[in-house]
């Protein structure tokens, strides 16, 4: 008896081999599917590689300045400040920015100050780090509803502007971030146009609390926090504090700003922290301090009302949000 049904025929896989093969197939599917699921989970949660590898920056003590050191606040951990960032040139996922931003080249660097000034400046990284640095501990409130306390190192923008000497016509200051698509390939998915632009009124820019930050926790800025030099305006939503600045231009008109251009209904030019004016899609009355579980009420001008409210007297803050 010779036929396909012959159990001894060599074409027929013996039951043992068949079960064995089945076992390996199943094991393979198990391994493959669980790895894929776990991998998918991981893509939403990229591991932030954050170590404070910056160089030390020496700071000098400054005369007492109200608001310079946030009273009764504990700074957030370095790994949170440097591991949870909005820097859309690199990623819109806040925990993915830290690793992606490692591609940013900060040497050489040139910061240009121009426009309506008597003395246009072109500053190298050495020039920027050569400014006498002070320490400021500021609250930082993101428009998304979270906040941190950050120990910055830097110098007042007013100091830089006093060297350039704004002309009488100057009313506003425009800022521009560094942009290089080669170093920022994911910027294509951000949904906003680059280079990133920001702006302040001249009196806001000259306010003693307005800082050009070059470091945090006593060391030079990590790339993801806006190395080598960024703006910090503590009473405004975080997106006003433009990162990795290459150009500062004095103007006689309100400059174009990135988020205002992207969505004027949601992001105003001023964007002062204001718990009574909600974002069209969410409330601004409360905030989540990173590291805390309970919500905190958001403070007017982020708690800097005593220092900055006079800049806006007589203004309708609901219209000029």
């Amino acid at each position: 008896m010779d036929g396909p049904s012959d159990p001894l025929s060599p074409e027929i896989t013996p039951e043992e081999t068949f079960l064995n093969r089945r076992f390996f197939l199943k094991a393979g599917i198990w391994a493959g599917s669980t790895l894929a699921t776990a991998g998918l989970y991981q893509t939403f949660k990229p591991a932030p590689a954050v170590k404070n590898t910056g160089r030390e920056i020496g700071t000098v003590a400054e005369p007492p300045l109200p608001g310079a050191i946030a009273v009764g606040e504990t700074p957030n951990r370095f790994e949170d400040i440097a591991g949870y960032n909005n820097f859309y040139e690199f990623s819109t996922n806040k925990s993915a920015v830290a690793s992606r931003a490692q591609s940013l080249q900060t040497t050489p660097w040139t910061l240009q100050v121009g426009g309506l000034v008597e003395h246009p400046l072109s500053l190298s990284l050495e020039d920027i780090l050569g400014f006498e640095a002070v320490q400021r501990i500021y609250r930082f409130r993101c428009v998304e509803g979270w906040s941190m306390v950050i120990p910055w190192v830097g110098f007042p923008l007013a100091k830089l502007l006093s060297l350039a000497v704004p002309t009488d016509q100057a009313t506003h200051v425009a800022f521009e971030s560094y942009y290089d698509r080669q170093q920022m390939p994911h910027s294509l998915f951000a949904g906003i146009a680059f280079p990133y632009l920001e702006g302040l009124r001249l009196d806001e820019a000259l306010h003693p609390l307005t800082l050009m930050a070059t470091g945090l926790y006593g060391k030079t800025l990590p790339n993801q926090n806006g190395a080598p030099v960024r703006l910090v305006v503590p009473w405004k939503y975080g997106f006003k504090s433009i990162k990795s600045v290459v150009k500062i231009t004095l103007t006689d008109h309100q400059p174009t700003t990135t988020w205002n251009r992207a969505n004027a209904r949601e992001y105003g030019f001023y964007s002062n922290v204001n718990p009574t004016v909600n974002h069209p899609r969410w409330s601004q009355a409360y905030e989540r301090r990173i590291g805390e579980t309970d919500l905190r009420p958001t403070l007017m001008f982020n708690g800097y009302a005593d220092q900055v409210a006079h800049l806006y007297t007589g203004m309708n803050l609901r219209q000029n949000f």
Partner: peptide, 26 residues
């Protein structure tokens, strides 16, 4: 198993404190 895996990973990451700076958002 694959359906429970994301939940298990969330619980595990929560237990070892590695849900990032803003666990609620994540």
């Amino acid at each position: 198993v694959n359906g429970l895996l994301p939940a298990a990973l969330l619980v595990f990451d929560g237990w070892r404190g590695s849900l990032g700076a803003n666990p609620v958002e994540f």
